[in-house]
Design a protein around this nucleic acid. Structure first.
Lengths: 211, 211
DNA sequence: TAACATTGAGTGGTCAGACCACTTTGTAAT
DNA sequence: ATTACAAAGTGGTCTGACCACTCAATGTTA
């Protein structure tokens, strides 16, 4: 069973003391050492590669990669999102993550530290202001990397409105929201966020009011 | 690249409308249809198998399996969850989804319909009361299938506390929470939920107070 | 007719060998 | 010393060949 090979590979990596970034034995050598065919070794290696545990470079070899780069979310998303036909669900879940980021920021002491808002302010003041950039900044500030990853994926599925830029109305709201966040006013922040959503919604229905 | 084949396989599954438990085309047929060698198809299939997305039975064929059975968690958790920050992220994201479900229920008109609460009540009144079942019911009622799926995955990472049963204290809170939900009281519901989280937290630190 | 045994087609599991494209390294010519 | 070329090594892919197994059609027997 090729699962056995996966196991043996892990054992071999451990015994050999292969460290992150270092090279593994070649496929042909592994096949000989594990006493199996090369194709069997490859099936195991490709599985580990799909998981993001190893990295292969043609002509060079196979390397142990940093598993902090794991592709868990990416992988699962392709299978989860495929059946979730409802765009509405994607939207709602994405908005959930955004709102929670806002709440987290307000409830933590983070919002008091001025330097945190620097990047945010810069993005909001320069032209053009891309929605995606602003929201991403908010989630980064909230500090939950997993949320950020999930959000990033959902955003890709959500498509349009995020890739375009904010109009004057939206920017006004976000300036208020920034202020509200800095003062840790949760209720007000959420209200402003909802107000922004409402604006986006109307814009989408009315057609090309943007740009 | 074999990643391309993984992608194409997904597409094929979708186009063909293969459902969970049903049989996929044979490796030889797939090779012919995708215009690649059988070994390449196998590398892709074995990867999906390691993820638990398909199941192969010698002499019979390859079958689409329920993604909920995937062993990804077991495989990756040893690598990923070593940093305590990761664990915390998982917890927080999971709680985010749970809270949002509560909010959604309160804000919709759903909570007024009595029949919705039947399954919930049954689960809460019978013994033993498994935490996981209750929360799942809440998210189902909220109606966001995508959230449910993401939550399901995170729950597996979260591990312990969810698989055991509630004690008397917890059940009391949940009876109140149920009542609060039925009346659409958002603030109160969230407060009760937080109270429950606090209880779980304390229980975890104090050790084996449950069962 | 019913129960059993046999056979063959189809399937995944594995292997060996052959190319290909690419990278690295060693070697020879300049 | 630099450059140009050749060779070895590596992953990527395909082919064909077995094996072990399952299942269903077929044939055989009671």
């Amino acid at each position: 069973m090729f699962l056995e090979i996966v196991k043996q590979l892990r054992q071999l990596i451990q015994d050999e003391g292969v460290r992150v970034g270092e090279k593994l034995p070649s496929e042909r050598e592994l096949a000989e050492r594990l006493q199996v065919g090369r194709s069997t070794v490859r099936e195991a290696l490709r599985s580990l590669e799909l998981l993001g545990l190893i990295e292969t470079r043609r002509g060079e070899g196979t390397f142990l990669s940093d598993f902090r780069k794991h592709q868990l979310v990416e992988l699962l998303s392709t299978f989860i999102l495929q059946e979730s036909k409802s765009k509405e669900d994607v939207h709602l879940t994405r908005e959930t993550l955004e709102k929670e980021a806002i709440r987290t920021i307000c409830q933590s002491e983070q919002h008091q530290k001025h330097f945190i808002w620097e990047a945010f302010l810069v993005k909001l003041q320069q032209e053009p202001v891309i929605r995606e950039d602003i929201i991403r900044e908010i989630i980064i500030i909230s500090g939950n990397r997993l949320s950020l990853k999930v959000w990033f994926l959902l955003k890709q599925f959500a498509g349009e409105p995020y890739q375009s830029e904010m109009n004057v109305e939206e920017k006004t709201i976000w300036m208020q929201l920034l202020n509200s966040l800095q003062n840790g006013k949760e209720q007000l922040s959420i209200s402003l966020y909802h107000e922004w959503l409402f604006l986006m919604d109307r814009r989408e229905k009315n057609g090309s009011r943007s740009i």
